[in-house]
């Protein structure tokens, strides 16, 4: 099930979620967007603006739930997420483009 919803229910929790990427698994919190947490885990993600208008950090969202505290300016394709501003709200699986 893939869902990307707009601001709602974005109250922060102390929860930690798993992000699956191929055979890797990264633990992320809801405190920061996905991009910085992936970078800290040593995963290279393409980026440019880091504030939601260029769509360079667009990543496939195979399943799971993310939200955007601010609706990004870039067009977010269905089945994708913008790593620079997405807050992960459940365990998710992502993939870079193939």
């Amino acid at each position: 099930m893939t869902s990307t919803s707009k601001p709602q229910g974005d109250e922060k929790t102390d929860q930690v979620h798993r992000v699956l990427l191929g055979k890797k698994q990264i633990l992320v919190t809801e405190d920061e967007p996905l991009l910085v947490q992936l970078e800290r885990a040593g995963i290279h993600v393409e980026y440019q603006c880091r504030e939601g208008y260029c769509s360079s950090c667009s990543v496939k969202l195979l399943w799971g739930h993310v939200i955007y505290p601010f609706e990004p300016l870039a067009w977010v394709q269905s089945g994708y997420l913008l790593a620079c501003c997405a807050i992960v709200k459940s365990d998710i699986e992502i993939a870079f483009f193939d």
């Binding site: 290279h44 393409e46 980026y47 440019q48 603006c49 880091r50 504030e51 769509s55 360079s56 667009s58 067009w75 394709q77 870079f96 483009f97 193939d98």
Partner: peptide, 28 residues
């Protein structure tokens, strides 16, 4: 990357950015 952004299938084999250093320059 740009083809996928407008809903087209990627055409070329290249899957990785051969000049990842460009991001540090492109970043706002």
């Amino acid at each position: 990357v740009r083809m996928q952004a407008v809903g087209l299938e990627a055409y070329f084999e290249t899957k990785h950015n051969p000049i990842p250093w460009i991001n540090a320059w492109l970043v706002s």
